[in-house]
């Protein structure tokens, strides 16, 4: 927050000048923090506005204590999430709880090692694949018995060779259906909330291609600028 007025002053000047100013300032700041952020690699995305700089893309400071502790705790927490998911048939838990625990492990890692770094490590494709794949898998398991002449989710018609189709059909629904949906959607909510609302420099947004926000981004920029001016 200490450098907020400087960035603000840069942002209120000429548009391009302000952009350069803020970019330079951020680079100077980043000097002390090594290369944790990839931000210094793409200066053109910077706008110099207060909210986009200090709010939307929150800078990351590393904490040795949190990083070391998360390194120790997260494998156990992830394993326990897998246990809750896979052992839901014999103990409390199931896909929903296990998926939430596994997503919480990702939150933990993101808080320790930076949300941006986690976002690059866990690409959007993975998150979307989890959510969409889970939904499709659940629907497929449900509709397969219908195709074979039964009812929706009639497990005993599932063509499983050796295993008990009822038990393993339920486990499949819990594991590759519900757990995947919940963990994927929760991780997605985390990343999309961490990015914030429609900042110009905040990664790929709907932007120009979308008819809704056509011509709305200037208004957005104005709103942010007045907000910054009030400070």
């Amino acid at each position: 927050m200490s450098d907020a007025p400087d960035v603000d002053a840069g942002g209120r000047g000429d548009e391009s000048g302000g952009r350069d100013d803020a970019g330079g300032k951020r680079d100077a700041d980043d000097g002390g923090r090594d290369d944790d952020r990839s931000g210094s690699a793409d200066p053109p995305r910077r706008s110099g506005r207060l909210d986009s700089e200090t709010r939307q893309g929150t800078p990351y400071t590393e904490s040795q204590v949190i990083m070391s502790t998360v390194k120790v705790v997260s494998p156990f927490a992830f394993t326990y999430g897998l246990f809750v998911t896979f052992h839901g048939g014999g103990s409390p838990g199931g896909g929903f709880q296990g998926g939430a625990i596994m997503a919480a492990v990702v939150f933990m890692i993101a808080f320790a090692f930076g949300i941006e770094a986690t976002r690059q490590w866990l690409a959007n494709t993975v998150v979307v694949a989890l959510a969409v794949g889970g939904t499709l898998a659940f629907a497929a398991i449900g509709l397969l018995p219908v195709a074979l002449g039964g009812a929706f989710l009639q497990y005993d018609l599932l063509p499983l060779p050796i295993l008990d189709p009822v038990k393993y059909g339920m486990e499949a629904v819990e594991i590759i259906g519900i757990a995947a949906i919940v963990s994927g959607v929760l991780m997605g909510l985390f990343f999309v909330l961490a990015r914030g609302f429609n900042g110009e420099d905040s990664g790929p947004s709907i932007g120009e291609r979308d008819p809704f926000s056509d011509g709305e981004s200037p208004e957005d920029g104005d709103g942010v600028a007045t907000d910054g001016g009030e400070r």
Binding site: T58, Y60, T61, I66, T69, Q97, F107, F111
Partner: peptide, 24 residues
């Protein structure tokens, strides 16, 4: 579950208290 996730709550709030979410 609480033993493992209580830690997440603690680090989330403690990192948030620094500049009120300015640094995460």
């Amino acid at each position: 579950v609480y033993a493992l996730l209580n830690f997440l709550m603690a680090i989330a709030i403690s990192k948030f208290t620094v500049e009120r979410g300015g640094v995460l």
